[in-house]
Design a protein around this nucleic acid. Structure first.
Ligand code: ZN
Ligand code: ZN
Ligand code: ZN
Ligand code: ZN
Lengths: 160, 160
DNA sequence: CTATGTATGTAATATCATAACACGTCAAGA
DNA sequence: TCTTGACGTGTTATGATATTACATACATAG
């Protein structure tokens, strides 16, 4: 049950981020995976804003904090988070964003504002169902799908 | 009106490709754009198969045929084709595929087989409508959207 | 404590993409 | 006719994104 406008609305983001982090710990524990310092820190960095960060942006942050400064350090942590469903990859941006409601099984669509670069997770059940149905008509079995929209968020729309 | 299983079905592909090329000429003429040798050749290369090719794959082909062998040569031609609606960019693959029905206004979904790498264009009107509606609920105005599915095509499914 | 699997660090390299500039062609318009 | 400007192409150089391979450290189970 994603709240589609969470990222665009004013909200208590400290609580929002802290809550996501808490859930993330629970998710990894339940999966028997290890939430190590690098991984936790990467998730925290992604959670700072409802935006997507490139692997090298994350890496630069890590490097200043005493972690390794080579690309695999960032890519491995990001890959782990994505596998655990704690972060998502935004294909259009070659970048990553923290999941705002980890632990719940979901496959969202992403709304990317071309002006302020905010990224929101929206419910995509209906769109996915349409896509799966259309694919099935061709005999194609969908395993994973990417649904991303580029446009103007409510805030930036108001200013235009 | 894309035929969603065209790419997966046995068909007279020579005719399929030739037809797309003919339409492409008409599209560019109508737009007052120039279908130059490099651009035409790139489109022909993309039309050889219902797959996506990376810019450097295209470039390698061009280079052996006496065209320039530097990346901008390929990227510029590909960008032109995408702008004219004669090719599509597949975000998941960082690659390009020829449009199978140029000239018609369309914004398809792509079905990408993870085994044989065939890429099919499927109708995405319903999925896009769902996405736009969900975005609108958040006050987000969609300008462009990317819908791509990864999975198994009918042929590869049969073999599994 | 020691073996095993897992995580991290690092060097090197591969892959994807763009900026900047030079040159050639062609078609207005002076 | 000559000039000019738009456009396309070629090339150099660089930037941005991502992976392979190998070494080291660390946790935990036996
Ligand atoms: Zn928040
Ligand atoms: Zn915005
Ligand atoms: Zn065909
Ligand atoms: Zn296939």
């Amino acid at each position: 049950m994603p709240d589609p406008d969470l990222a665009f609305a004013a909200h208590d983001h400290a609580h929002c981020a802290h809550d996501a982090l808490t859930r993330a710990e629970a998710v990894t524990a339940a999966a028997g995976a290890r939430m190590t310092p690098v991984r936790r820190r990467v998730l925290e960095i992604l959670l700072e804003e409802h935006k997507a960060l490139g692997a090298y942006d994350v890496l630069a942050r890590l490097a200043t904090e005493g972690f390794g400064n080579q690309p695999p350090v960032a890519y491995r942590a990001l890959e782990f988070l994505v596998e655990q469903g704690l972060a998502h990859r935004i294909q259009r941006l070659n970048a990553f964003t923290a999941c705002v409601h980890p632990g719940q099984d979901h496959a969202p669509a992403f709304l990317i504002c071309r002006t302020c670069h905010t990224v929101a997770e929206a419910e995509a059940t209906a769109a996915r169902a349409s896509l799966d149905a259309e694919a099935a008509r061709a005999g194609f079995q969908v395993e994973r799908s990417t649904i991303e929209a580029l446009g103007l968020c409510p805030n930036c729309r108001g200013q235009a």
